[in-house]
Design a protein around this nucleic acid. Structure first.
Length: 208
DNA sequence: ACGCCGATTCTC
DNA sequence: AGAATCGGCGTC
């Protein structure tokens, strides 16, 4: 028990750093969600860093609100928000307690529970596309508002597990997708050449 | 109270 | 290229 606690404490310490530092190291980590219907596990292939109050594209840019409160809390918890009134997007909270910082989970490879993930996604979806895109990843894992604030490192239904860092040559970086403000910083990271990574799309709202 | 806009995705 | 759709936040 002490070993398990020490291990999760060590992982939380790694997450309690600025999102930009944490984001590339999360590639390859797995996130599992277990329900009465089974477990779906995703291996992360694409993430984006959001740096809180200093980052105009972050939901925390204007300080704490009811929506973004979780981002100001301790690292290793889940921050979910509704995008365009349609999609639930998931973030891993990073940084020190009291400082807002998070990593948006943009895509992953489903490595467990593919049939359940496909059922949630509805219809015939190619394996590589089951969790491609932040909304799809959340849907494949069955994540929504009810999971906002949940600990990813405890005994609950959500579990984030680390893997050794990928070789730097396998990690690519570039502009964040779909953001209007601060769209030109290379804070998106993905596994180079992986078919489960989403296509880059510049926000139509970016000013020319 | 009201209106705009978004860390998107699917279909036409 | 455009619709769908809801919550947060700024403004009236």
């Amino acid at each position: 028990m002490a070993e398990a606690r020490d291990e999760s404490g060590e992982v939380r310490a790694r997450l309690a750093r600025p999102g930009l530092e944490v984001a590339p190291t999360l590639l390859g980590w797995t996130l599992s969600h277990t329900t009465e219907h089974g477990t779906v596990t995703v291996r992360l292939t694409e993430v984006e860093a959001y740096m809180g109050e200093d980052d105009p594209a972050s939901h925390a840019h204007r300080g704490p609100t009811a929506r973004n409160a979780v981002m100001f809390g301790p690292a290793g918890h889940l921050y979910t928000y509704l995008s365009y009134g349609v999609h639930w997007c998931s973030n891993v909270v990073t940084g020190e307690d009291g400082r807002a910082s998070a990593v948006l989970l943009r895509a992953g490879r489903v490595v467990e529970g593919a049939s359940l993930a496909r059922h949630r996604r509805g219809g015939r979806v190619k394996d590589a596309a089951l969790a491609r895109g932040p909304g799809c990843l959340g849907q494949a894992l069955g994540l929504h508002r009810g999971h906002n604030g949940m600990d990813l490192l405890g005994a609950g239904p959500l579990r984030l597990r680390p893997t050794p860092d990928l070789p730097p040559s396998h990690v690519a970086s570039g502009h964040r997708v779909g953001v209007r403000l601060a769209h030109d910083v290379p804070w998106r990271f993905w596994v180079d050449g992986d078919p489960t990574v989403s296509a880059y799309r510049r926000s139509p709202r970016v000013r020319p």
